[in-house]
């Protein structure tokens, strides 16, 4: 189907966009970034925004820059821009690896990192990445700027604490610990489909024991998150298939899985365990000295 009628606004600056949002957000105006989620929703008549504020003409929003302890990702950085390492070393390699799991090539050329965080699909790879590595969302409106930590960002499936008149101008993605290594696993039925379950895991080795353990799950629950119980079971242990399996099994009792007609909750519960185990196994292969995504 075709999208319902709307008025397209094409601001040239962030201030102009904030002004348009201040004037029109109450009536339902939406930001148009890559359009790879919003336009299908309009075509399916799931969204009827009377106004679209197209940010694609705003110069400077496409920046991806390492800055202190984080990577600053502007609102027009596309999924595609991460396909080759954006920063040297394991961090860039991890983001490149994950970007290839998102949709398909011609969707990645348009879709944006920040749009994924704004859209907050439970299966979004970038939302899982932000939740697991840590991130801050920088919001701009006429009232000023505020930064929201990822722990406070998601309110539910496709819902965030962003106010309608706020533009997400940048995501600050935390840089993983020096020496840490990472693994990612996602399951879907066809290449490029949304994940049914995914996990991102990382740790660094200190005297043969795992430290700074991060284990996050996506597409399993309404909101991606780290699993503290699983991380605690791994912290200080030597890595290995047994330790990974034992810890991953804790996830089965810790998650409240989404359910749909094709995927019962128990299926996702099992998948969470498998995804975590496989992400950890990939992280083990990537430890320094091994080939892969190690610092």
């Amino acid at each position: 189907m075709k999208a319902p009628p709307f008025t397209l606004h094409r601001p040239a600056t962030v201030d102009e966009a904030a002004g348009l949002l201040a004037a029109l957000a109450d009536e339902g105006a939406l930001v148009l970034a890559g359009g790879q989620s919003l336009v299908p929703m309009m075509a399916l008549r799931l969204a009827y925004p009377p106004d679209l504020i197209d940010i694609n003409g705003i110069a400077g929003l496409d920046r991806i820059e390492l800055s202190g302890d984080h990577l600053a990702i502007g609102a027009l950085a596309r999924h595609h821009d991460f396909r080759r390492s954006v920063v040297p070393g394991p961090f860039g390699a991890l983001l490149a690896r994950i970007s290839h799991e998102i949709a398909h090539y011609p969707i990645r050329t348009r879709g944006t990192f920040c749009g994924s965080l704004a859209h907050a699909d439970p299966a979004s790879e970038w939302c899982l990445t932000a939740a697991t590595l840590g991130a801050e969302m920088v919001l701009r409106s006429q009232a000023g700027e505020r930064a929201v930590p990822v722990a406070d960002w998601f309110e539910g499936a496709m819902a965030t604490v962003r106010e309608p008149e706020e533009l997400l101008v940048e995501v600050r993605l935390s840089r993983p610990a020096e020496g840490s290594a990472w693994g990612f696993y996602e399951f879907n039925r066809r290449a490029g489909d949304f994940a049914i379950g995914a996990a991102l895991a990382g740790y660094r080795l200190e005297g043969g024991a795992m430290r700074d353990v991060h284990v996050g799950i996506g597409a399993i629950e309404e909101v991606p998150r780290r699993l503290g119980e699983v991380e605690a079971a791994l912290e200080g242990q030597p890595p290995g298939p047994e330790a990974f399996r034992t810890a991953a099994r804790i996830a089965a009792g810790a998650v409240e899985p989404l359910e749909d007609f094709a995927t019962p909750a128990d299926y996702r519960r099992d998948l969470a365990v498998t995804a975590i185990e496989r992400a950890l196994a990939e992280a083990a292969l990537a430890q320094p000295g091994q080939r892969g995504m190690a610092a």
Binding site: R10, G35, V39, D54, N56, P106, R110
Partner: peptide, 19 residues
Amino acid sequence: CTVIVDGRPVRSCLMFARQ
């Protein structure tokens, strides 16, 4: 519907003409 816009392949059903 794939076409090339400024060197990159895109879905032309997910872009509005004015863009």
